[in-house]
């Protein structure tokens, strides 16, 4: 199945958000997709699947648009 992933984690190293279309197996979770995108999830993330707040265990489906953003607070 094809899933489009947009990661904002790349901005933490000076880049722009990265968009990739992944060809995944049925049952792939958001966490699996983040690993493929080399997203460091150790501090958590904002995970939106088709705009809906989700979590790392959420299972992706054909045609999903998956956005992952760093979990930032004030400083």
């Amino acid at each position: 199945m094809k899933v489009q992933v947009k990661s904002f984690f790349s901005v933490l190293s000076g880049g722009k958000p990265v968009v990739r279309t992944l060809d995944l197996q049925e049952g792939t979770t958001a966490e699996d997709a983040m690993k493929l995108m080399k997203v460091d999830f150790s501090d958590g993330a904002i995970i939106l699947i088709n705009g809906r707040p989700s979590n790392e265990k959420s299972v992706l489906s054909e045609g999903d648009f998956f956005v992952v953003m760093p979990p930032v607070s004030a400083a």
Binding site: D43, G44, A45, E56, P71, S73
Partner: peptide, 17 residues
């Protein structure tokens, strides 16, 4: 959406940001 729902497993406790 609530902040609580937006952030999946956030943890920045004790970090120097």
């Amino acid at each position: 959406a609530r902040l609580k729902d937006l952030f999946a497993r956030p943890d920045n406790t004790g970090r120097v940001t």
